[in-house]
Nucleic acid binder design. Structure first.
Lengths: 191, 191
DNA sequence: TATAATTTTCAGAAATTTCTGAAAGCTTAT
DNA sequence: ATAAGCTTTCAGAAATTTCTGAAAATTATA
């Protein structure tokens, strides 16, 4: 299979960006190629188009499946396995977002939780633990917010992402609705 | 300088997570150490505490400065340069968030923009470009939303992050306020 | 201005990650 | 059961990233 110049540029770019998004070059390329190709592809086609080894494709597909980004399917009269993206662009983005939340936030939250359990022994430790507490609080909120975003319907998500400068207006709206008197916001920052 | 067991666990963990957050192990460790240490540290202290070479510390500090995460300062009667975090945890998080937006979104947006400029030559290319268009639309919205978040005041940000399940309620509120008839929402999606 | 203190640089070493290809393992068809 | 077609595995090779340490550059002091 031949890649047009444009497709190639896109695929290569995704390969380069891949590492920033959490997977390696060839996995990024594979995902990009599957995304812009109208039909499902099998492992041999991927290997040929990307000029990488069959074994590498196998590992890459495994990785993409562990991210739940691709789906396997069989084509009638063909014993090979074919692969295509596991959903719309929006669904895929949501999956990547969620997967990254898990990988980037959860482990640190769990470490910090355990660190904060037992009491500091000296003033050095007290200060360190104070900072860890601040980080924990922040990360936990980010985590909760990310979870919220993931639970929004596609429409709601679209609305939110399209708010533009409306985000701060929306917050004002909220304040005016609920009234400033409700001051006991237990989650407010202390800084 | 000796690290307590707890501090060491934290510093090492940040080293491991570092790569997921965009910097390498020792840079992550340096940042963690500077964050939980009450006083500024110089390069030699960092090298000794983390048991890494002086040259590595120099490069790491350069990296942290390029992220604008640390600030240099001089202590009276000492020619060495001392370093400490460039702000509160919240400010630092905002900087990391913004820096990652730049590194993870901007390059792809710019590639896609140029790819979408000239017309597809055949049906393969047409399909590929359609997908690229969808990705572009999505990334641009995420980018705009991220920018919005970055412009919120600390209080607004706290409010938003603390909304919890209120996010979707807030969106309903917005809809009910504006009414579904007010269709000329300039920031609405075009899909 | 010379010298001592400190930081930066960067070539090569070490560590880590990614990739290949041949062999082993499945699955389906005969 | 055997073979053919396809997929996975994994040891070692290749590529990439990170780290070291000595030398060069910079900055401050005498």
């Amino acid at each position: 299979m031949e890649l047009s110049a444009k497709s190639q540029a896109f695929v290569f770019h995704f390969g380069e960006m891949g590492s920033r998004w959490g997977f390696n070059r060839t996995v990024g390329q594979m995902f990009a190629l599957l995304t812009i190709t109208p039909t499902p592809l099998n492992a041999d086609q991927l290997a040929e188009a990307l000029k990488i080894s069959r074994g590498n494709v196998s590992m890459g597909l495994k990785e993409l499946q562990s991210w739940r980004l691709v789906q396997r399917q069989h084509l009638p009269g063909d014993r090979k396995e074919y692969f295509s993206p596991a959903g719309s662009i929006w669904e895929l983005a949501r999956i990547v977002f969620e997967e990254r939340r898990k990988r980037e936030l959860t482990p640190t939250l769990s470490l910090l939780r355990s660190q904060l359990l037992d009491a500091p022994q000296d003033s050095q430790e007290r200060h360190a633990q104070e900072k860890m507490g601040e980080i924990y609080e922040l990360l936990e909120r980010m985590d909760g917010f990310a979870n919220q975003l993931n639970e929004l319907s596609p429409e709601q998500l679209t609305t939110l992402l399209s708010l533009g400068s409306g985000v701060s207006k929306l917050l004002e709206l909220k304040n005016s609705m609920l009234g400033k008197n409700k001051a006991q916001d237990s989650t407010a920052p202390e800084s």
